[in-house]
Design a protein around this nucleic acid. Structure first.
Lengths: 364, 364
DNA sequence: ATGAAAGCGCTAACAG
DNA sequence: CTGTTAGCGCTTTCAT
């Protein structure tokens, strides 16, 4: 049987009604002191406030949301919270959300697109003001249309799907987007290597079909072509974004791969793995082989030599993602265009892992 | 004027009522197919399901929560999501929550206890099944009682406050707790240093009043005393948990501090900073000075030499925190004791940053 | 197997 | 300045 609201029930939480009764006022008045959005006599307010305190009253956010107030929540969906790339973006989202008095729902997909879709649904059910999906995606027909559908559903309800660090969904999908100049960063750091005389550069890591990898590889190749350097398919070794992949594949290639004088790791984590393999093979960075990464997460400064890499404004991306999505919360009369997009810049940060190519090939 | 529920309103979201009307059934039936917890005729179910699809219906979690269903949410409050110590615990919480079909609210206090209290309130308002507060705390009278009050409020509403990696609040506060053997880990690693002949060990970093620091220092001292080594206050240099602190203080002490042959950094991050200072001072680890850390986060394996440290089962702590708090969700008749506690073990992991003390003092 | 209707706790007209 | 009251969208008896 459904529990009746007998006042004698110790387990039941106090409600506005209880507070109102105790303070000898109406629920409307209680609501008013709760929201401080309407004048209430000083004496009344105090009575209500002590009633709340005595009863241990805590407002019910669900009832409030149901009654028409925004529930002040933004959702963020990442691969992995312990991966600094995602963690920094998450931090930006969380901070910006907190600034607006919002709480942050966080989910990890562990790389599973299905889980991502399911999480979007869960957040939609919770009526999040915005849901931010972070990181590269693979261009799958079915998946993309599922995502687009959710973007529409969310939009229809006044929420927003924000794409953070991934390509747009196409015209039909109302989304907001924050990107970073991924291709440009890859171009710049490749050019940096080129300027030091490296012509045989190994590109290592990153899931081959992921948009992130495609963009980085594109920038890399553009730089090569611009200098008139032929592209050797053997020097393109995508795979995964893990330290382990960097380590293993590097070791293999050192044993029986093509020659190269520099390595462009798809990200800093892969670079860390590669660095270890290089170290174990007795090769010195940068004397024997130059090494660069991407993302500029803290490990880049911890490696020895410190890693030259591409800085990505991760935290700022997170902040902008929520700003883009919830900025319209205040202005009522003028609807922003449904699709806002933003592209942040990247730049290389030169540290100690690149040196001019040695006179002779470093490997043979 | 309040928007009326005219069916012609394009912006309005579909509700059970809309679905019911469209499918030619009652809202009760819609609810039944939604929850699949009650028999519904196959044909009816299909009609309802297509109605939902056609309308783009998405259940409203708030309405559902209001109507008496758990909202399946757990909250976690940490200092900083980008700090691996917290990130790993958060990952455990998230994964365990996801296993139970729950979503995770995450907040960062940036070290401010006031913010922590405020976030607990926000999560309580959201009726989170559990709220996990992570990391050491400082023993402040007022703060502790505020926390205890919230523990009681939460408990009164059937939720739970979970202390993760911090000392209990005292008898009066109904909480669950997951600790790790902090003192024991510090004891063990100090003893490890002692076994290598080190007697002058610098303890570096960690906020002096934080419970975490106190416990680590206590274990450290117990090990020293057990070997009959007098405690030199000058060798105790707490301060902060940052890389920067480790770097700076280490550099200062190298310039004009006491003599020591080993450094026990309060955590791995501090150790990374100290390692850099040592490196810049031309001292070799472990030949000249031995160095150990605490936590065993990834950076420990990235440092060169790789860092000997204390492993803390971070992710497992997170998992257990939610398990402890929401396990009682199924059994109805028997209430668990309101205060569950759990203490997980720690152990040292020996890598390359410790060597036997050199014959002569390494510094002078 | 299905429907009618009573809440769940709160907010916001509207009326004093 | 304060009270009355009608929902918000869903679940759940209780009937049928």
């Amino acid at each position: 049987m459904r529990r009746q609201s007998t006042a004698a029930d110790g387990q039941r939480r106090a409600t506005v009604t209880d507070v109102a009764r105790r303070a000898g006022v109406s629920t409307a008045t209680v609501s008013r002191v709760l929201n401080r959005n309407y004048p209430v006599a000083e004496a009344t307010r105090e009575r209500v406030e002590s009633a709340m305190r005595e009863l241990g009253y805590v407002v019910n956010a669900h009832a409030r949301a149901l009654a028409g107030v925004s529930n002040r929540t933004v959702g963020i969906i990442v691969n992995e919270v312990i991966d600094p790339f995602y963690a920094y973006i998450a931090r930006g989202v969380e901070r910006e959300a907190a600034l607006g008095g919002r709480l942050c729902l966080v989910c990890c997909t562990q790389g599973d697109p299905q889980r991502e879709l399911a999480f979007i649904d869960l957040m939609h059910e919770r009526r999040a003001d915005a849901v931010v999906v972070v990181g590269g995606s693979i261009a799958d027909r079915g998946y993309t249309s599922e995502l687009a559908r959710r973007a529409r559903e969310l939009d229809a309800g006044g929420s927003k799907l924000v794409l953070c660090g991934r390509p747009p969904l196409g015209e039909a999908a109302p989304t907001a987007a924050v990107e970073y100049d991924n291709e440009g960063g890859a171009f710049a750091i490749t050019d940096h290597l080129l300027m030091q005389g490296h012509e045989r550069i190994l590109y290592l890591g990153g899931p081959p079909k992921l948009s992130t990898t495609r963009d980085r590889l594109a920038g890399h190749r553009r730089a090569l072509e611009l200098r008139g350097i032929a592209i050797d398919p053997e020097l393109s070794q995508p795979g995964a974004f893990s330290r382990n992949f960097g380590y293993r594949r590097m070791a293999e290639l050192l044993r029986d791969g093509p020659e190269f004088t520099a390595v462009f790791a798809a990200n800093d984590v892969v670079a860390a793995g590669a660095a270890q393999a290089l170290e174990e093979a007795g090769l010195r960075v940068p004397k024997d082989i130059s090494l660069v990464g991407y993302d500029d997460i803290p490990v880049a400064q911890e490696l020895r030599p410190r890693l030259t890499t591409v800085h990505v404004p991760l935290e700022e991306m997170g902040r902008q993602a929520v700003r883009l999505a919830v900025s319209g919360g205040d202005e009522d009369d003028w609807r922003e265009p449904t699709t806002g997009a933003l592209r942040l810049g990247t730049h290389i940060v030169v540290r100690d892992s690149v040196a001019p190519r040695a006179g002779r090939a470093s490997r043979m």
